[in-house]
């Protein structure tokens, strides 16, 4: 498993035999079209459209209250937009349902931690496997043959994720007792347990110090690299965003004001204005 700090990564971020970006990135897997979302008079998103391509790392940026989290919530069905369509893997939805999104391969993390407080790290991540469990309740309760084997198989995946995120030491710790940065990792681990095709990350590095951010960047890039998982992430740290994303969508007051490669977005007048005018 790669363990280089982010700064040491080459621009293309590929560690062994880096394929050039244009062959790595596939066709459009997810697109939102003309999404508008209101909260009783407050317009959180106005007519926003963009595409997400397979295997890419897409960042959504914008000042506070720009509608970034709302956008992720619309994509995985926590919020239902009043207008617009969501298209995922050739199926179109006016409104997604969270459990359907999960079943179709969209996992997410939360801006404000939403871990299951009463459970250990292991159990939290294990819940991410729930959907994939097939044996009956009675068999599970009695831990008879097939149920036992199924539990072990899922447990193995979870242990692998725990190793990957380097949280072995906290496996049995109730998540509420962990430091904030570690909780963010567990949140990521739970999402990874779904083995998603698309991973939505809402400020995965908020509130972290530089070292923790580097670790988190490394995890995200490794996931993208090793499993080809498409990443959509919201992040305020411009250094990180410019470093790890293939493409950036910029929102401001619920509208899309920019969409392009890091280089293109950096030179976009509207984006510069939005950021100079905004406080963080």
């Amino acid at each position: 498993m790669a363990s280089l700090p982010v700064q040491a990564l080459p621009a293309s971020k590929r560690l062994d035999e880096p394929p050039p970006a244009h062959t790595r990135i596939g066709p459009v897997i997810l697109s939102v079209a003309n999404i508008s979302l209101d909260f009783g008079g407050v317009r959180a998103i106005s007519d926003v459209s963009f595409d997400v391509r397979e295997h890419e790392v897409l960042a959504i940026i914008g000042p506070n209250g720009a509608g970034k989290s709302s956008m992720l919530n619309v994509i995985n069905g926590v919020y239902h937009a009043q207008q617009g369509r969501i298209r995922f893997k050739d199926r179109e939805f006016a409104a997604m349902q969270p459990h359907r999104a999960a079943a179709m391969g969209i996992a997410r993390t939360f801006q404000n931690l939403a871990l299951f407080k009463g459970m250990s790290v292991l159990d939290n991540i294990m819940t991410g496997r729930n959907m994939k469990m097939r044996t009956g309740i009675l068999a599970q309760a009695l831990r008879v043959g097939p149920a036992e084997r199924e539990e072990m198989r899922h447990r193995e995946v979870v242990e692998h994720i725990i190793d990957f995120l380097e949280i072995q030491a906290y496996r049995k710790t109730p998540v509420g007792r962990l430091a904030y940065g570690l909780q963010k990792r567990v949140d990521l681990g739970r999402a990874l347990a779904l083995e998603p095709e698309v991973l939505l990350l809402d400020e995965p590095m908020a509130g972290m110090n530089v070292e923790e951010k580097q670790d988190m960047c490394r995890f995200i890039l490794d996931v993208n690299e090793q499993y080809g998982t498409t990443i959509v992430l919201i992040e305020h740290d411009m250094g990180v965003v410019m470093d790890i994303s293939d493409r950036i969508v910029v929102l401001d007051y619920g509208r899309k004001i920019g969409d392009g490669t890091p280089g293109e977005v950096r030179g976009n007048r509207a984006v510069i204005d939005a950021y100079l005018g905004a406080t963080h």
Partner: peptide, 28 residues
């Protein structure tokens, strides 16, 4: 036993702790 050992029990505990997160990992 039901709450500790079964996937459904785990789902119930998950829902009790956080509705949105539980739905987002595929629990209807």
């Amino acid at each position: 036993v039901f709450f500790r050992r079964t996937a459904t029990g785990r789902a119930l505990r998950a829902v009790a702790d956080d509705h949105q997160a539980a739905q987002s990992i595929g629990i209807p």
